[in-house]
């Protein structure tokens, strides 16, 4: 089983979150690639069983420009069988806290097997570490053997 984490970060908050999630994934012995958005190609999606996307939100809770390509890749490629999770960091002082997570959520629900979403305020805190673990638990549980 292979997983990818595709993410974009400006202040470092989302990349910190991506790394925490990556570390958690490795505990399930799921081979995980950490892909910054500028190294992403749409056809890469086909290499993975699990794809998680990490994004910050911009201004009025919008997608950052550089995440548009990732968004469109899920719309254009054949990804129905892929299990996905969307996570992001945001600041509740702006309207539509983590709005880009919601935008991805609605699209991923239609095109993929969306399992889980996660929002974190700025830098991940102690409490968020548990939530990151849950996030990965949920993704991995999609592949648990039903006996």
């Amino acid at each position: 089983m292979k997983a990818a984490i595709i993410y974009s970060s400006v202040t470092g908050n989302t990349s910190t979150l991506a790394e925490i999630i990556c570390e958690n994934m490795s505990k399930y012995t799921i081979e995980t690639d950490l892909i910054p958005v500028d190294e992403f190609h749409p056809e890469q999606l086909h290499n993975y069983d699990i794809v998680t996307v990490g994004t910050y939100s911009w201004d009025n809770g919008e997608l950052p420009l550089e995440m548009e390509e990732v968004f469109e890749a899920f719309e254009d490629e054949e990804v129905k069988h892929i299990t996905t999770g969307i996570f992001g960091t945001g600041d509740s002082f702006y309207p539509y806290y983590c709005g880009a997570v919601d935008i991805f959520r609605d699209m991923l629900y239609v095109h993929t097997n969306l399992a889980v979403t996660l929002k974190v305020e700025l830098t991940p805190q102690e409490e968020d570490l548990h939530r990151c673990k849950k996030f990965c638990d949920r993704l991995a549980s999609e592949f648990a053997v039903v006996s």
Binding site: D102, I103, R105, D106, M107, Y109, V110, L114, A115, V116, T117, L118, K119, R131, K134, F135, R138
Partner: peptide, 16 residues
């Protein structure tokens, strides 16, 4: 403009 309907955890995924 995006045309997706707003979904929530009642659609079968977890929101953390």
């Amino acid at each position: 403009s995006r045309t997706y309907t707003k979904v929530s955890s009642s659609n079968g995924f977890d929101e953390l």
